[in-house]
Design a protein around this nucleic acid. Structure first.
Lengths: 111, 111
DNA sequence: TGTCCGTGCAACCACACGATTGCGCTTTCG
DNA sequence: CGAAAGCGCAATCGTGTGGTTGCACGGACA
């Protein structure tokens, strides 16, 4: 289990911020299920505008969660799993550190 | 591996939003290492105001990540791990679904 | 009792963010 | 070619958010 270094946590902040929006989570779920999709495809079925979807996708791209592929007049988007794993490791580190703190508290009470 | 239901993802959005701030991640790291800390203790060593720290703590509490304990004239804060595990499971689900999508793509190319 | 110390509350401010509208450009296709 | 589809760019708007200041309140302790 990795130590909880504050610096590595700070790097995960933009990823969490990008994930902290229902619309963007919905986009990620769609890309998970559908592979590479165009902006028009991702906009269909939603109530928001194509430009709004574009902005959200670029926010996700800024966090390294997603990548675009230009193909003719379309612009396809697909998931980029690396940063998601980073965020997972950060949460694992927090949980591990927390369990450790609980352990310390338990042994202190039992004394 | 759990299916990736959009509804369960939506519930994780506020947690991710709460984690998507460097200051709040710093607070979480401090609470991980230090157990229950007061607002004054959490403010010491930072450049921001006590009220700003209070607001961040209440944001974290709103996401169910943290809990306060009134003790005399102090107000101690400690971590509350349940929602963190929820967020972890959400990221695990995304990663699993992504691996699955990669697998589908691979078998399609090999045909 | 007086007096710090730790907080709470309310107002306020600057700025980022989610979202829209309007227009123009390139690619595809009849 | 001409038209429609898919998209980008820029301006705009309301609202949420991070942060501050000022003041008031209650507990701890000499």
């Amino acid at each position: 289990m990795p130590k909880l270094r504050p610096t590595s946590l700070q790097k995960a902040a933009p990823v969490f911020a990008a994930l902290g929006d229902p619309t963007r989570l919905r986009l990620i779920a769609a890309l998970c299920a559908g592979g590479a999709l165009s902006i028009a495809q991702l906009t269909a079925g939603t109530t928001i505008t194509r430009q709004a979807v574009t902005k959200h996708l670029e926010t996700l791209a800024g966090a390294g969660l997603v990548r675009d592929i230009r193909q003719g007049r379309e612009r396809l988007w697909e998931l980029k799993p690396s940063r998601i794993d980073d965020a997972r490791r950060s949460l694992d580190a927090i949980a591990a550190q927390w369990d450790q703190a609980l352990q310390r508290l338990k042994s202190f009470v039992e004394k």
